[in-house]
């Protein structure tokens, strides 16, 4: 009986601790650290980009809205790259081949980072797919955006322009 009681206690404790309640990465907070390999294997640290406006996007090949967001991110990188915008797209596929197949159909003209473990998504508190973070030149999160819809493009671009002090 005592064994049963302690089992009960242990499993209730596991229940209470299991789905750990974590707070989201909020606007105004300093961006969490990010260090991941690029497509060619060389690591990139977010801290190296301090002073630039960075748009960090977490995506995966199986995510429908991610596919829609790529042409828009290509356009943003092309339009604002010379003004200091850096787009980092963190791939969260467990299999690299899935990401490659996606990229063959949906080319990306911005920096790709690979995190098959999903550890970065955990530390950035990604709430949905895709989730993107606009980080100002001061290294602080300006905007957290989950999902991607056609009608949100205008507002997202305005936020990028504001971050780049173009508006």
């Amino acid at each position: 009986m005592r064994t049963l009681r302690s089992l009960l206690g242990a499993s209730l404790l596991a229940l209470a601790l299991g789905p750990g309640v974590v707070s989201a990465t909020m606007p105004g907070a300093t961006a969490p650290a990010l260090e991941l390999p690029q497509a060619n294997g060389s690591p990139l640290r977010l801290a190296e980009l301090m002073g630039q406006v960075v748009y960090v996007d977490f995506w995966a090949s199986w995510c429908g809205p991610c596919r829609k967001s790529f042409p828009w991110m290509n356009a943003m990188q092309q339009r604002y790259g010379s003004q200091g915008l850096v787009i980092l797209a963190v791939n969260l596929d467990e299999a690299r081949a899935d990401a490659e197949a996606f990229l063959a159909a949906t080319p990306a003209a911005f920096t790709l980072l690979y995190d098959p473990s999903g550890q970065s998504a955990r530390s950035w508190r990604v709430k949905g797919m895709p989730t993107s973070y606009l980080i100002g030149a001061d290294g602080k999160v300006r905007l957290v955006h989950t999902g991607f819809r056609e009608e949100q493009r205008v507002e997202l671009e305005r936020q990028i322009r504001l971050a780049l002090a173009l508006e």
Binding site: G18, W62, L92, A121, K127
Partner: peptide, 14 residues
């Protein structure tokens, strides 16, 4: 049994 349930994170939903 309940303790065996795990939360599926958004990036694990492939």
């Amino acid at each position: 049994g309940l303790a065996g349930c795990a939360a599926v994170e958004p990036w694990q939903k492939a």
